[in-house]
Simulated scan of single mutants.
Amino acid sequence: MKQFLLLYIISFFLIQCKSSNQKESIKKTDKISVLKYAKGFEIITKNGYKELIIKKVFQKSNKQFSYILSNSKNNKNEIKVPVKKLVVTSTTHIPMLELLGSESALVGFPNTQYISSKKTRKRITEGKVIELGSEQSMNTEKLMDLNPELVVGFSLHPNNKLYENIKKAGIPVVFNGDWLEETPLGRAEWIKFFGALLNKEKEADSIFNKIEAEYLKAKNIAKENNKNITVISGSMFKDVWNVPAGKSFFSSYFKDANLNYLWKDTNGTGSLQLSFEEVLDKGKKANFWFNCGLYETKTQLTTANIHYKEFDAFINNNLYSIAHNKGETGGLIYFELSPVRPDLVLKDLIKITQPNLLPNYQLSFYNRVK
Protein backbone atom coordinates (compact mmCIF):
# COMPACT_ATOMS: atom_id res chain seq x y z
CA MET A 1 0.00 0.00 0.00
CA LYS A 2 2.83 2.37 0.91
CA GLN A 3 4.57 1.58 -2.39
CA PHE A 4 1.35 2.28 -4.30
CA LEU A 5 0.91 5.62 -2.47
CA LEU A 6 4.51 6.58 -3.19
CA LEU A 7 4.10 5.67 -6.86
CA TYR A 8 0.89 7.74 -7.01
CA ILE A 9 2.60 10.80 -5.52
CA ILE A 10 5.55 10.53 -7.93
CA SER A 11 3.19 10.13 -10.91
CA PHE A 12 1.15 13.14 -9.76
CA PHE A 13 4.20 15.38 -9.62
CA LEU A 14 5.46 14.15 -12.99
CA ILE A 15 2.10 14.97 -14.58
CA GLN A 16 2.08 18.41 -12.93
CA CYS A 17 5.59 19.13 -14.18
CA LYS A 18 4.66 18.04 -17.68
CA SER A 19 1.54 20.22 -17.60
CA SER A 20 3.56 23.17 -16.33
CA ASN A 21 6.16 22.68 -19.08
CA GLN A 22 3.41 22.54 -21.70
CA LYS A 23 1.95 25.81 -20.41
CA GLU A 24 5.38 27.37 -20.43
CA SER A 25 5.90 26.12 -23.98
CA ILE A 26 2.59 27.63 -25.11
CA LYS A 27 3.47 30.88 -23.36
CA LYS A 28 6.76 31.04 -25.22
CA THR A 29 4.93 31.06 -28.56
CA ASP A 30 3.65 34.56 -27.71
CA LYS A 31 6.17 37.11 -28.87
CA ILE A 32 5.90 40.73 -27.78
CA SER A 33 7.49 43.19 -30.18
CA VAL A 34 10.49 44.98 -28.74
CA LEU A 35 9.53 48.57 -27.99
CA LYS A 36 12.35 50.43 -26.31
CA TYR A 37 10.71 53.77 -25.60
CA ALA A 38 7.03 53.88 -26.61
CA LYS A 39 4.57 53.23 -23.78
CA GLY A 40 1.31 53.63 -25.64
CA PHE A 41 1.06 50.39 -27.62
CA GLU A 42 2.23 46.79 -27.93
CA ILE A 43 2.30 44.24 -30.74
CA ILE A 44 1.96 40.61 -29.66
CA THR A 45 2.59 37.84 -32.17
CA LYS A 46 0.57 34.73 -31.35
CA ASN A 47 -0.07 31.47 -33.18
CA GLY A 48 -0.70 32.62 -36.75
CA TYR A 49 -1.78 36.19 -36.05
CA LYS A 50 -0.80 39.47 -34.37
CA GLU A 51 -2.56 41.47 -31.70
CA LEU A 52 -2.23 45.25 -31.64
CA ILE A 53 -2.89 46.67 -28.19
CA ILE A 54 -3.34 50.43 -27.89
CA LYS A 55 -2.77 51.39 -24.26
CA LYS A 56 -3.34 55.14 -24.22
CA VAL A 57 -4.82 57.46 -26.83
CA PHE A 58 -6.71 60.04 -24.76
CA GLN A 59 -5.26 62.43 -22.20
CA LYS A 60 -7.62 61.68 -19.35
CA SER A 61 -8.50 58.07 -20.10
CA ASN A 62 -6.55 54.83 -19.77
CA LYS A 63 -9.04 52.83 -21.83
CA GLN A 64 -7.26 50.17 -23.88
CA PHE A 65 -8.15 48.88 -27.34
CA SER A 66 -7.20 45.53 -28.82
CA TYR A 67 -7.20 44.51 -32.49
CA ILE A 68 -6.37 41.28 -34.27
CA LEU A 69 -4.20 41.78 -37.35
CA SER A 70 -4.64 38.96 -39.84
CA ASN A 71 -4.86 38.24 -43.55
CA SER A 72 -8.66 38.07 -43.34
CA LYS A 73 -11.42 39.96 -41.52
CA ASN A 74 -14.02 37.94 -39.63
CA ASN A 75 -15.25 40.33 -36.92
CA LYS A 76 -15.23 43.98 -35.91
CA ASN A 77 -12.04 43.73 -33.86
CA GLU A 78 -10.07 42.27 -36.75
CA ILE A 79 -8.11 44.31 -39.26
CA LYS A 80 -7.00 42.79 -42.52
CA VAL A 81 -3.33 43.46 -43.16
CA PRO A 82 -1.56 44.77 -45.06
CA VAL A 83 -3.89 47.77 -45.16
CA LYS A 84 -3.92 49.00 -48.76
CA LYS A 85 -6.31 51.97 -48.49
CA LEU A 86 -6.42 54.18 -45.41
CA VAL A 87 -7.29 57.60 -44.09
CA VAL A 88 -5.13 59.24 -41.43
CA THR A 89 -6.10 62.32 -39.43
CA SER A 90 -2.85 63.91 -38.21
CA THR A 91 -0.03 65.35 -40.31
CA THR A 92 2.39 63.49 -38.02
CA HIS A 93 1.23 60.26 -39.68
CA ILE A 94 2.26 61.42 -43.18
CA PRO A 95 6.08 61.14 -42.78
CA MET A 96 5.72 57.70 -41.21
CA LEU A 97 3.81 56.43 -44.24
CA GLU A 98 6.38 58.00 -46.57
CA LEU A 99 9.38 56.59 -44.70
CA LEU A 100 7.80 53.15 -45.07
CA GLY A 101 7.27 53.72 -48.79
CA SER A 102 3.49 53.44 -48.31
CA GLU A 103 2.29 56.96 -49.16
CA SER A 104 0.20 55.47 -52.00
CA ALA A 105 -2.02 53.79 -49.38
CA LEU A 106 -3.31 57.20 -48.25
CA VAL A 107 -6.60 58.06 -49.98
CA GLY A 108 -8.05 60.82 -47.81
CA PHE A 109 -7.20 63.38 -45.15
CA PRO A 110 -9.04 66.13 -43.21
CA ASN A 111 -7.60 69.63 -43.71
CA THR A 112 -5.15 68.75 -46.48
CA GLN A 113 -3.86 72.34 -46.49
CA TYR A 114 -1.85 71.54 -43.36
CA ILE A 115 0.16 68.83 -45.13
CA SER A 116 3.66 70.10 -45.98
CA SER A 117 5.29 67.05 -47.59
CA LYS A 118 6.04 67.72 -51.25
CA LYS A 119 5.49 64.08 -52.11
CA THR A 120 2.00 63.94 -50.58
CA ARG A 121 1.08 67.44 -51.81
CA LYS A 122 1.73 66.17 -55.34
CA ARG A 123 -0.70 63.30 -54.72
CA ILE A 124 -3.29 65.79 -53.41
CA THR A 125 -2.90 67.88 -56.58
CA GLU A 126 -3.33 64.74 -58.69
CA GLY A 127 -6.58 63.92 -56.87
CA LYS A 128 -5.17 60.80 -55.23
CA VAL A 129 -5.66 62.13 -51.69
CA ILE A 130 -9.14 63.56 -51.15
CA GLU A 131 -9.96 66.52 -48.86
CA LEU A 132 -12.37 65.36 -46.13
CA GLY A 133 -13.10 68.63 -44.33
CA SER A 134 -12.15 69.31 -40.72
CA GLU A 135 -11.00 66.50 -38.44
CA GLN A 136 -13.84 66.92 -35.92
CA SER A 137 -16.58 67.16 -38.58
CA MET A 138 -15.24 64.99 -41.36
CA ASN A 139 -17.32 64.64 -44.51
CA THR A 140 -18.54 61.09 -43.95
CA GLU A 141 -20.17 60.86 -47.38
CA LYS A 142 -16.84 61.47 -49.10
CA LEU A 143 -15.23 59.05 -46.68
CA MET A 144 -17.74 56.31 -47.55
CA ASP A 145 -17.14 56.91 -51.27
CA LEU A 146 -13.42 56.33 -50.74
CA ASN A 147 -14.23 53.04 -48.95
CA PRO A 148 -10.96 52.91 -46.97
CA GLU A 149 -9.99 49.72 -45.19
CA LEU A 150 -9.02 51.70 -42.09
CA VAL A 151 -9.20 55.15 -40.50
CA VAL A 152 -6.33 56.02 -38.17
CA GLY A 153 -7.94 58.41 -35.73
CA PHE A 154 -6.67 61.19 -33.53
CA SER A 155 -8.89 62.68 -30.84
CA LEU A 156 -8.55 64.61 -27.60
CA HIS A 157 -11.67 63.00 -26.13
CA PRO A 158 -12.84 59.35 -25.91
CA ASN A 159 -16.50 60.12 -26.68
CA ASN A 160 -16.17 61.18 -30.30
CA LYS A 161 -19.43 60.74 -32.23
CA LEU A 162 -17.72 61.12 -35.59
CA TYR A 163 -15.56 58.04 -35.11
CA GLU A 164 -18.49 56.07 -33.67
CA ASN A 165 -20.48 56.83 -36.82
CA ILE A 166 -17.55 55.76 -39.00
CA LYS A 167 -17.36 52.45 -37.14
CA LYS A 168 -21.13 51.95 -37.48
CA ALA A 169 -20.68 52.33 -41.25
CA GLY A 170 -18.37 49.28 -41.17
CA ILE A 171 -15.03 51.10 -41.46
CA PRO A 172 -12.56 50.12 -38.73
CA VAL A 173 -11.05 52.93 -36.65
CA VAL A 174 -7.76 52.63 -34.79
CA PHE A 175 -6.66 55.52 -32.60
CA ASN A 176 -3.04 56.64 -32.68
CA GLY A 177 -1.59 57.99 -29.42
CA ASP A 178 1.91 58.98 -30.50
CA TRP A 179 1.32 62.56 -29.30
CA LEU A 180 0.97 61.36 -25.68
CA GLU A 181 4.44 59.84 -25.48
CA GLU A 182 6.67 61.64 -22.98
CA THR A 183 10.02 61.12 -24.74
CA PRO A 184 11.16 62.08 -28.25
CA LEU A 185 12.23 58.53 -29.14
CA GLY A 186 9.00 57.15 -27.68
CA ARG A 187 7.01 59.27 -30.10
CA ALA A 188 9.20 58.30 -33.06
CA GLU A 189 8.81 54.60 -32.27
CA TRP A 190 5.16 54.76 -33.33
CA ILE A 191 6.44 54.15 -36.85
CA LYS A 192 6.27 50.49 -35.72
CA PHE A 193 2.50 50.94 -35.26
CA PHE A 194 2.23 51.70 -38.99
CA GLY A 195 4.74 48.95 -39.73
CA ALA A 196 2.35 46.41 -38.18
CA LEU A 197 -0.67 47.71 -40.11
CA LEU A 198 1.20 47.74 -43.41
CA ASN A 199 3.04 44.43 -42.92
CA LYS A 200 6.32 46.35 -42.92
CA GLU A 201 7.55 45.63 -39.43
CA LYS A 202 11.13 44.87 -40.49
CA GLU A 203 11.30 48.12 -42.43
CA ALA A 204 9.85 50.05 -39.48
CA ASP A 205 12.39 48.48 -37.10
CA SER A 206 15.25 49.35 -39.44
CA ILE A 207 14.11 52.97 -39.90
CA PHE A 208 13.61 53.50 -36.19
CA ASN A 209 16.98 51.96 -35.35
CA LYS A 210 18.69 54.48 -37.64
CA ILE A 211 16.78 57.40 -36.09
CA GLU A 212 17.62 56.15 -32.60
CA ALA A 213 21.31 55.75 -33.49
CA GLU A 214 21.46 59.31 -34.85
CA TYR A 215 19.71 60.67 -31.77
CA LEU A 216 21.99 58.88 -29.32
CA LYS A 217 25.05 59.89 -31.34
CA ALA A 218 24.00 63.56 -31.17
CA LYS A 219 23.25 63.22 -27.45
CA ASN A 220 26.73 61.83 -26.89
CA ILE A 221 28.31 64.68 -28.92
CA ALA A 222 26.40 67.20 -26.77
CA LYS A 223 28.25 65.92 -23.71
CA GLU A 224 31.36 67.64 -25.05
CA ASN A 225 29.71 70.95 -24.20
CA ASN A 226 31.25 71.95 -20.86
CA LYS A 227 29.71 75.42 -20.80
CA ASN A 228 26.75 76.38 -18.66
CA ILE A 229 24.46 77.44 -21.50
CA THR A 230 21.14 78.61 -20.06
CA VAL A 231 17.89 78.47 -22.04
CA ILE A 232 14.25 79.47 -21.70
CA SER A 233 11.27 78.42 -23.76
CA GLY A 234 7.75 79.51 -24.66
CA SER A 235 5.89 82.81 -24.88
CA MET A 236 2.82 84.60 -23.55
CA PHE A 237 -0.75 83.65 -24.40
CA LYS A 238 -3.05 86.32 -23.00
CA ASP A 239 -1.71 86.79 -19.46
CA VAL A 240 0.04 83.43 -19.10
CA TRP A 241 3.53 82.29 -20.15
CA ASN A 242 3.42 78.55 -20.82
CA VAL A 243 6.77 77.09 -19.85
CA PRO A 244 7.64 73.38 -20.36
CA ALA A 245 7.73 71.64 -16.97
CA GLY A 246 10.90 69.86 -15.84
CA LYS A 247 9.74 66.37 -16.84
CA SER A 248 7.97 67.46 -20.01
CA PHE A 249 8.54 66.23 -23.53
CA PHE A 250 10.48 69.29 -24.64
CA SER A 251 12.48 69.57 -21.43
CA SER A 252 13.98 66.18 -22.33
CA TYR A 253 15.35 67.70 -25.55
CA PHE A 254 17.16 70.39 -23.55
CA LYS A 255 18.53 67.75 -21.20
CA ASP A 256 19.80 65.59 -24.07
CA ALA A 257 21.37 68.65 -25.72
CA ASN A 258 23.26 69.22 -22.45
CA LEU A 259 21.68 72.64 -21.93
CA ASN A 260 20.79 74.25 -18.63
CA TYR A 261 17.04 74.68 -18.96
CA LEU A 262 16.05 77.03 -16.16
CA TRP A 263 12.91 75.11 -15.17
CA LYS A 264 14.50 71.65 -15.39
CA ASP A 265 13.99 70.95 -11.67
CA THR A 266 10.23 71.55 -11.66
CA ASN A 267 7.68 68.73 -11.50
CA GLY A 268 5.11 67.85 -14.12
CA THR A 269 5.07 66.55 -17.68
CA GLY A 270 3.00 69.37 -19.15
CA SER A 271 3.37 73.14 -18.97
CA LEU A 272 3.81 75.56 -16.10
CA GLN A 273 1.52 78.58 -16.26
CA LEU A 274 3.65 81.52 -15.14
CA SER A 275 3.34 85.29 -15.17
CA PHE A 276 5.58 87.44 -17.35
CA GLU A 277 7.29 88.79 -14.23
CA GLU A 278 8.16 85.29 -13.00
CA VAL A 279 9.78 84.36 -16.31
CA LEU A 280 11.62 87.69 -16.60
CA ASP A 281 12.94 87.40 -13.05
CA LYS A 282 14.41 83.95 -13.67
CA GLY A 283 15.16 84.04 -17.38
CA LYS A 284 16.26 87.60 -18.14
CA LYS A 285 19.94 86.62 -18.46
CA ALA A 286 19.35 83.29 -20.26
CA ASN A 287 21.70 82.74 -23.21
CA PHE A 288 19.04 81.41 -25.62
CA TRP A 289 15.29 81.64 -25.99
CA PHE A 290 13.56 78.85 -27.96
CA ASN A 291 9.96 78.49 -29.15
CA CYS A 292 9.11 82.16 -28.71
CA GLY A 293 5.70 81.72 -30.33
CA LEU A 294 4.99 81.60 -34.05
CA TYR A 295 6.81 84.85 -34.70
CA GLU A 296 9.31 85.35 -37.52
CA THR A 297 10.64 88.79 -36.60
CA LYS A 298 11.56 90.71 -33.46
CA THR A 299 9.14 93.43 -34.56
CA GLN A 300 6.29 90.92 -34.43
CA LEU A 301 7.43 89.87 -30.96
CA THR A 302 7.56 93.37 -29.53
CA THR A 303 4.20 94.18 -31.15
CA ALA A 304 2.76 91.29 -29.15
CA ASN A 305 4.57 92.37 -25.96
CA ILE A 306 6.93 95.33 -25.82
CA HIS A 307 8.60 93.91 -22.71
CA TYR A 308 10.05 90.93 -24.59
CA LYS A 309 12.96 93.20 -25.50
CA GLU A 310 14.10 93.14 -21.84
CA PHE A 311 15.52 89.61 -22.22
CA ASP A 312 19.25 89.24 -22.93
CA ALA A 313 18.47 86.58 -25.55
CA PHE A 314 16.38 89.19 -27.41
CA ILE A 315 19.11 91.82 -27.12
CA ASN A 316 21.82 89.36 -28.27
CA ASN A 317 19.75 87.97 -31.17
CA ASN A 318 19.59 84.50 -29.69
CA LEU A 319 15.86 83.88 -30.28
CA TYR A 320 14.81 80.85 -32.31
CA SER A 321 11.44 79.87 -33.75
CA ILE A 322 9.91 77.07 -35.84
CA ALA A 323 7.63 79.55 -37.65
CA HIS A 324 9.83 80.15 -40.71
CA ASN A 325 9.83 76.66 -42.25
CA LYS A 326 6.47 76.04 -43.92
CA GLY A 327 5.03 73.88 -46.63
CA GLU A 328 3.64 75.44 -49.80
CA THR A 329 0.16 75.80 -48.26
CA GLY A 330 1.35 77.17 -44.92
CA GLY A 331 1.63 74.03 -42.79
CA LEU A 332 4.53 74.08 -40.33
CA ILE A 333 7.11 71.44 -41.23
CA TYR A 334 8.13 71.07 -37.58
CA PHE A 335 4.69 69.85 -36.51
CA GLU A 336 4.57 67.29 -39.32
CA LEU A 337 8.08 65.88 -39.42
CA SER A 338 9.66 66.38 -35.99
CA PRO A 339 7.74 63.59 -34.16
CA VAL A 340 9.36 60.92 -36.32
CA ARG A 341 12.71 62.76 -36.63
CA PRO A 342 13.63 63.78 -33.07
CA ASP A 343 17.27 63.37 -34.03
CA LEU A 344 16.96 66.46 -36.24
CA VAL A 345 15.37 68.51 -33.45
CA LEU A 346 18.19 67.56 -31.09
CA LYS A 347 20.82 68.40 -33.70
CA ASP A 348 19.16 71.78 -34.26
CA LEU A 349 19.47 72.62 -30.56
CA ILE A 350 23.12 71.54 -30.48
CA LYS A 351 23.97 73.38 -33.71
CA ILE A 352 22.39 76.63 -32.46
CA THR A 353 23.99 76.60 -29.02
CA GLN A 354 27.33 74.90 -29.81
CA PRO A 355 27.85 75.13 -33.61
CA ASN A 356 31.42 73.80 -33.43
CA LEU A 357 30.12 70.42 -32.25
CA LEU A 358 28.21 69.83 -35.52
CA PRO A 359 30.20 71.85 -38.09
CA ASN A 360 28.63 70.31 -41.20
CA TYR A 361 25.01 70.14 -40.04
CA GLN A 362 22.36 72.47 -41.49
CA LEU A 363 19.33 73.44 -39.40
CA SER A 364 16.16 71.46 -40.16
CA PHE A 365 13.39 73.23 -38.22
CA TYR A 366 14.62 76.31 -36.35
CA ASN A 367 15.57 79.76 -37.60
CA ARG A 368 16.80 82.85 -35.86
CA VAL A 369 14.14 85.48 -35.21
CA LYS A 370 15.62 88.69 -36.69
Results as ranks from 00 to 15, higher is better:
289 W>T: 04
154 F>T: 02
228 N>C: 11
258 N>T: 08
247 K>R: 14
8 Y>I: 15
4 F>I: 15
27 K>L: 10
251 S>Q: 03
278 E>A: 14
239 D>Y: 12
331 G>R: 03
5 L>Q: 11
98 E>D: 12
185 L>T: 12
334 Y>S: 05
176 N>Y: 05
178 D>Q: 09
236 M>H: 02
235 S>F: 09
365 F>Q: 05
192 K>T: 08
89 T>W: 06
196 A>P: 09
226 N>K: 09
322 I>N: 07
324 H>P: 03
319 L>K: 10
59 Q>E: 13
69 L>V: 04
145 D>V: 11
285 K>F: 12
302 T>R: 08
294 L>H: 10
55 K>R: 09
124 I>T: 04
46 K>M: 07
172 P>H: 06
99 L>K: 08
32 I>Y: 08
317 N>C: 10
36 K>P: 08
333 I>V: 12
90 S>M: 13
246 G>E: 10
142 K>N: 14
168 K>M: 11
184 P>E: 10
278 E>P: 00
48 G>I: 06
77 N>V: 00
229 I>Y: 14
117 S>P: 03
277 E>T: 08
178 D>K: 05
245 A>M: 05
43 I>R: 06
356 N>Q: 06
129 V>N: 02
363 L>K: 00
369 V>H: 01
166 I>Q: 04
141 E>L: 10
274 L>I: 15
197 L>P: 13
321 S>R: 07
114 Y>C: 05
71 N>G: 15
278 E>G: 03
168 K>Y: 13
302 T>V: 14
144 M>D: 12
8 Y>R: 15
288 F>Q: 03
87 V>L: 04
151 V>N: 06
205 D>P: 13
220 N>W: 08
49 Y>D: 00
354 Q>Y: 15
84 K>G: 09
3 Q>L: 15
39 K>P: 00
8 Y>C: 15
94 I>R: 03
62 N>Y: 10
49 Y>F: 14
80 K>C: 03
44 I>K: 13
59 Q>F: 11
20 S>H: 00
222 A>Q: 02
195 G>T: 04
67 Y>T: 14
196 A>K: 04
171 I>V: 11
50 K>S: 10
333 I>H: 05
361 Y>A: 01
3 Q>R: 14
290 F>D: 04
338 S>F: 05
142 K>L: 15
311 F>S: 08
325 N>M: 07
191 I>P: 02
80 K>Q: 12
86 L>S: 11
351 K>H: 02
14 L>A: 01
22 Q>E: 09
72 S>M: 02
284 K>N: 05
188 A>S: 13
127 G>P: 04
243 V>I: 14
92 T>R: 14
18 K>V: 12
17 C>D: 04
271 S>Y: 08
63 K>Y: 15
361 Y>M: 01
147 N>L: 09
202 K>N: 12
46 K>E: 11
222 A>P: 05
8 Y>V: 15
25 S>G: 04
205 D>C: 07
297 T>V: 02
259 L>H: 07
